[in-house]
C-alpha cells in the first residue's frame, strides 16, 4: 500500500476505486500489502508476506524501476482536498484542544500514566498498588515522585513522551506502604553421576507503592 498511498495520499476515493479494479490490483500486488491483494495473488504469494526489502529485489531484477507514476494533473480537484496544513499548525490545534480539556476537569476522566520504576514499565492510575521486587531504598511512609513517565492520558487524549514526558508536564506521586519478603523460591540443581548438587532457598525483598495522584499541567506553546 505504501507507494500507491504515498503518491496520492489525500485522494482516498481514488485509491479505493483503483483497488477494486483487478488489473490495477494485480499490478500493485508487488508493492501493496498482502491483505488487500491476496485473493488475486498466485499461490506462492499466498502464504508469504513480501517485505519491502524483498520488493526492492524484484524491482532491481531487470535493472529498471517499474513504478506507477501518479501525477497531480490526474487528480480531480473537486473530489480531493488539496489544502496543506503545516505540522506546526496542527500541533498548535492539538495543544489547544488538550488544554481546554484539562481546564474542564470533568472531560478528562481518570488519568493514567506509564511509569518506569526499577527498570520495569507499568501502566498505573490513582489508587493502584505497585509491587517492586528487589532492592528499593525508600522506607515505609516515604512519599516519592515517579519521574520517568513515558505516557499520560485521559478520556479523550494521550500524551506520549519521546521517550519521557517533561517534569513540568506530569507529576506522579506515590507512597511506600509496605516492605516485605516474597514467597520462598527454591534454587536447586544437580548433575547426575557427578556428585554435583546445590540447594538454596531464596526470598527477594518486595516493596508496595500506592499511587496517590497523577497531575497534568497545561501544555506549553498553545
Amino acid at each position: 500500500m505504501s507507494i500507491l498511498a504515498r503518491s496520492i495520499f489525500r485522494a482516498g476515493e481514488a485509491v479505493n476505486g483503483l483497488l477494486h479494479l483487478m488489473p490495477a490490483a494485480l499490478h500493485a500486488g508487488h508493492i501493496t500489502c498482502k491483505t488487500i491483494v491476496r485473493p488475486f495473488c498466485v499461490a506462492s504469494c499466498m502464504n508469504k508476506y513480501v517485505r519491502p526489502i524483498d520488493q526492492m529485489k524484484y524491482k532491481h531484477k531487470d535493472g529498471k524501476f517499474q513504478l506507477p507514476t501518479w501525477r497531480i494533473d490526474n487528480l480531480d480537484p473537486d473530489t480531493t482536498d488539496l489544502t496543506v496544513v503545516s505540522p506546526q499548525q496542527r500541533t498548535q490545534e492539538l495543544t489547544q484542544r488538550v488544554n481546554t480539556a484539562l481546564e474542564n476537569r470533568e472531560d478528562v476522566g481518570r488519568l493514567f500514566a506509564v511509569v518506569q520504576v526499577t527498570g520495569l514499565q507499568r501502566k498505573v492510575t490513582t489508587e493502584d498498588i505497585l509491587v517492586i521486587s528487589g532492592t528499593f531504598h525508600p522506607n515505609i511512609g516515604d512519599k516519592i515522585r515517579l519521574e520517568k513517565v513515558l505516557m499520560a492520558g485521559g478520556k479523550n487524549f494521550t500524551l506520549v513522551g519521546r521517550p519521557l514526558l517533561s517534569r513540568d508536564l506530569v507529576k506522579v506521586e506515590a507512597t511506600v506502604i509496605e516492605k516485605t519478603l516474597s514467597h520462598v523460591k527454591v534454587k536447586f540443581n544437580y548433575i547426575r553421576r557427578k556428585r554435583y548438587r546445590k540447594f538454596k532457598l531464596l526470598q527477594t525483598p518486595n516493596t508496595m507503592l500506592v499511587i496517590n495522584s497523577i497531575e497534568l499541567n497545561p501544555l506549553p506553546g498553545s
Binding site: R6, P52, M56, T69, L75
Partner: peptide, 15 residues
Amino acid sequence: VGLESLTIDSPHGIF
C-alpha cells in the same frame, strides 16, 4: 520514511 524512499526518488505529486 518508507524503505522505498531511501533508494528511489519520490514520485511526482506527494503531499
